[in-house]
Design a protein around this nucleic acid. Structure first.
Length: 465
RNA sequence: GCUUCCUUAGCUCAGUCGGUUAGAGCAACUGACUGUUAAUCAGUAGGUCCUUGGUUCGAGCCCAAGAGGGAGCGCCA
């Protein structure tokens, strides 16, 4: 049977050259047996649609067909023909079958009927075989590909920043310790503290929480770069928007001011949305029908709508004048709560909002100080339903101002010597931002929990699979 | 980390006021039937009521602790 080459179902379903011999391999979604024929719905992951196999009992052994059930893996060689049925254009009249693996129907957990997302999370090793997760992970691939394409077309370079970091750089969230010291009996120093000088790297190391600082180093030489890799936060956040291990896209650009940065962010989000609409129509239609009836309409509207751009100070004014009672009171200088962001994005403007120029005290040390000395050149992109999808800023390029800020915040100055060096030697105005990949996926798929848009989610108390 | 809700068959759920042998739909199994479309029809089987302890003559149901899960909040991406 392996004389001819396996073809993908996605290709065969739109094939115009019919009445030829083909070979397909995939997993049985459902099988309907009748006296003379069996109808097999086969899926190979290449598309959400199945191809229908007609197994004539005079051609294929009934004993073999009887063993097949949902989940079994088979190869079928046969004739690709126009379908006599109503719901599909083409089908395969099987001539030979090869069984790769049966799936005992008594114990195979996936049924022909729908399952809850919560149940499927418990069988993440098998959920990729469902329509929903097939669609999601195909889109996830498409988004990853489109991100590289977008930046490549713009002349950005993809930089790999380290996953193990030697300093508690950004202070964003809690860190996972990386060590090879014996945990039960670690070496101690004179003060009785664990002596990390004897550790693998000769110092304390952690999993990265952001590639940004390294990204800045690269941008101050390659000019326009981006990173796209995993990041780790040991925060015990238990929400549908947080993961302990998630993927982040972090572009960093020399000679970009905050405005250039915002333009890039908006262009990227629209590019990715349009890419999904162009390349994942069938998967989006499925998700639109089963999970979020407004998904496609919302994606289409995002592409066309200019995002609102608003300073933090103006946003505070809008909130104060809204007449709404918020649980957390609004005042200049407080960090915006979810309820405030949601009011702006979902009620007041009803479209994505980019907030800029936050008070320096609620933002990170590396953000460029404005002339008012009270606010920094920060920007957050807020999306409906998701909240903050992007956070970024123009970076402080002035050595003296940056050093002053590090000292004000009591950060370990010596740890940042290499970062400060870039401001000492040939500093340049530069900007960048971080886009949470799983939050982008929430937006593009209409899912409401990040655990459903990453194949094997890592959250507190959950590292199965 | 805080608040709140949930946990009963493989899945989704019902279970009255604390009372005899814990139910349904779907899936599975057996059979019938059919170019079928998450097929249809008939039948069969399937239970550590999350765990532990307590109250009670009697607990799926009430109380306590624990485990797991969902949502909201905080932090953020």
């Amino acid at each position: 049977m392996s004389i001819i080459k396996r073809e993908k179902i996605v290709k065969l379903l739109s094939e115009t050259e019919l009445n030829r011999s083909v070979l397909v391999k995939g997993w049985v979604r459902t099988i309907r047996n009748s006296k003379k024929f069996s109808f097999i719905e086969l899926n190979d992951g290449s598309t959400i649609s199945n191809i229908q196999i007609i197994a004539d009992h005079e051609v294929l052994s009934v004993d073999i067909l009887k063993e097949l059930s949902t989940g079994a893996c088979i190869g079928i060689q046969g004739m690709l023909v126009p379908s006599e049925g109503k719901n599909q254009k083409v089908e395969i009249q099987a001539s030979t079958i090869e069984v790769y693996g049966l799936a005992d129907p008594e114990s195979y957990p996936l049924q022909k009927k729908g399952h809850t997302l919560e149940f499927l999370r418990e069988i993440a090793h098998l959920r990729v075989r469902t329509n929903t997760f097939g669609a999601i992970f195909r889109i996830r691939h498409g988004m990853a590909f489109a991100i590289h394409q977008f930046f490549h077309q713009k002349g950005f370079f993809y930089v790999h920043t380290p996953i193990i970091t030697g300093s508690d750089t950004e202070g964003a969230g809690e860190l996972f310790l990386v060590t090879t010291l014996p945990i039960h009996n670690p070496p101690k120093d004179e003060k009785g503290n664990i002596n990390f000088k004897e550790d693998f790297f000769g110092k304390q190391t952690h999993l990265t929480v952001s590639g940004q600082l390294n990204g800045e180093l690269a941008a101050l030489g390659l000019a326009e770069i981006y990173t796209f890799g995993p990041t780790f936060r040991a925060e015990k956040s238990n929400t549908p928007r947080h993961l302990a291990e998630f993927w982040m896209i972090e572009p960093e650009m020399a000679f970009y001011d905050l405005n250039d940065n915002i333009n890039l962010a908006e262009e990227l989000l629209k590019y990715l949305t349009q890419y999904a609409l162009n390349h994942h129509q069938k998967d989006l239609e499925f998700l639109n029908e089963h999970y979020d009836k407004e998904l496609i309409a919302r994606l289409e509207s995002i592409v066309q709508t200019p995002f609102v751009r608003l300073s933090y100070t103006n946003a505070i004014e809008i909130l104060l004048n809204s007449g709404k009672k918020f649980e957390f009171p609004v005042a200049w200088g407080v960090d915006l709560q979810s309820e405030h962001e949601r009011y702006l994005v979902e009620e007041h403007f009803n479209k994505p909002v980019i907030l800029t120029d936050y008070p320096k005290d609620i933002k990170a040390f590396y953000m460029k100080l404005n002339d008012d000395e009270k606010t920094v050149r920060a920007m957050d992109v807020l999306f409906p339903k998701i909240g903050e999808i992007i956070g970024g800023s123009q970076r402080e390029e002035d050595y003296a101002k940056l050093l002053k800020r590090i000292r004000e915040l009591n950060l370990p100055e010596e740890e940042y010597w290499w970062y400060l060096d870039t401001r000492k030697f040939g500093t340049a105005p530069h900007s960048g931002f971080g886009l949470g990949f799983e939050r982008l996926m929430l937006f593009v798929t209409g899912m409401s929990n990040v655990r459903d848009v990453i194949p094997f989610p890592r959250t507190t108390k959950n590292a199965e699979f």
